[in-house]
Design a protein around this nucleic acid. Structure first.
Length: 318
RNA sequence: GCCCAGAUAGCUCAGUUGGUAGAGCAGUAGACUGAAAAUCUACGUGUCCGUGGUUCGAUUCCGCGUCUGGGCA
């Protein structure tokens, strides 16, 4: 039996959800989300989760399952996704992995190893304090002494990364170090994926992002953020750092007016889309589709499905 | 109609004692191994409103025009 999977990636608001559903229907697959916000319970409007109607059209996994008060990370995602994907393979169902979180997708298609030390809160806090007192360069110099390779890759101002690297050294007797992207560029042999990279002309994409933010507000985004805060979530929770959430939270806290919150949400979504495109541009084997080049959704789907069919019915020889 | 102020990057504006210009924001490009919707790095762009004059040289000074604010009638 071939263990083949389909991966749909692309920037926010490009239309991944609807295309993933069509593709899943077309090849009898089930959708596995690779989205770091849609995974949280209660983050419905701001993360643009699929609607009830969309959910009923294809089975979705890894959406709406994590308590937003807990700290979640790629490591957990990788494990959960692997379980889901394996169970789909067992049932001879094609996984259609869809989402915009590049690191999550990488954790599936590349051999990324998260078995070493996890997050170490006390060390992290200590180092953060040190950076505060002595400056970013100080921590970077510390890292340089103990792991020159990692230090070379990390800019001193990228505090989170520098701290993470030091955290690894402190907890593992210098054994493990922060590994580079290149080093882990080995494909995960269990996956055998075909990657579909959906994009649009920049101007059109930005128009879609801007008007989607307006729609999210009309659908009650402010209310959703208020409810989340009432339920005990604070701005410090990782889940609340999502675009649309942190900006509206600032408005609710009285830092600025709603118009400014909307402006920030739109701008940050645009910048995020830009970063996603940069990330997915690194996938050498991705099949790219610029949706702006086609007359209709049906037309694109014809082409996409053709590519997928060729892939699925190739006899696997891995 | 008269008086005053302004017109410079996509936007808001600074500046050039006359030698064709720079900040913020927007934008563009990139990095990424346990926060990733996070975090970090790098980079432009210009008929300096038009027109005539003074000048070796005008975006800068002067005249006229146009437009935009504000005031007075």
């Amino acid at each position: 039996m071939d263990r083949k999977s389909i991966i749909i990636v692309g920037p926010t608001a490009v239309g991944k959800t609807e295309y993933a559903i069509e593709i899943a229907k077309h090849c009898g697959g089930e959708i596995v989300s690779a989205d770091s916000m849609q995974i949280y319970k209660g983050f419905d409007i701001g993360s643009a989760k699929p609607t009830e109607e969309e959910l009923s059209q294809a089975k979705h996994h890894l959406i709406d399952i994590i308590d937003p008060k807990t700290d979640f990370s790629v490591a957990e995602y990788q494990k959960m996704a692997a379980d889901v994907i394996n169970s789909l393979f067992d049932r001879d169902v094609t996984p259609v992995i869809a989402g915009g979180t590049g690191l999550y997708v990488n954790s599936l298609i590349y051999d990324m190893d998260f078995s070493h030390t996890g997050k170490q809160d006390h060390i992290r806090k200590k180092l953060e304090r040190e950076a505060d007192l002595l400056g970013n360069d100080h921590l970077h110099k510390m890292l340089e002494k103990q792991d020159p390779e990692a230090a070379k890759r990390l800019h001193p101002n990228n505090l989170k990364r520098v701290i993470r690297a030091l955290e690894l050294i402190e907890t593992s007797d210098g054994e493990s170090s922060l590994r580079s992207f290149e080093e882990s560029f080995k494909p995960n042999k269990l996956m055998n994926p075909i990657i579909i990279f959906l994009n649009r002309d920049r101007e059109e994409l930005y128009d879609r992002i801007n008007s989607r933010v307006d729609i999210l507000l009309e659908s009650g985004l402010v209310r959703e953020v208020e409810d989340l805060k009432d339920s005990g979530l604070s701005n410090e929770n990782i889940s609340m750092k999502g675009i649309g959430y942190k900006e509206i939270a600032g408005f609710i806290d009285g830092e600025y007016d709603l118009d400014h919150a909307i402006y920030l949400t739109k701008r940050n979504s645009r910048r995020y889309a830009k970063r996603q495109i940069t990330w997915f541009n690194r996938y050498p084997d991705a099949h790219r589709f610029n949706l702006s080049d086609y007359g209709s959704k049906e037309e694109v789907l014809t082409y996409i499905c053709k590519v997928i069919e060729t892939f699925l019915y190739q006899t696997g020889n891995q």
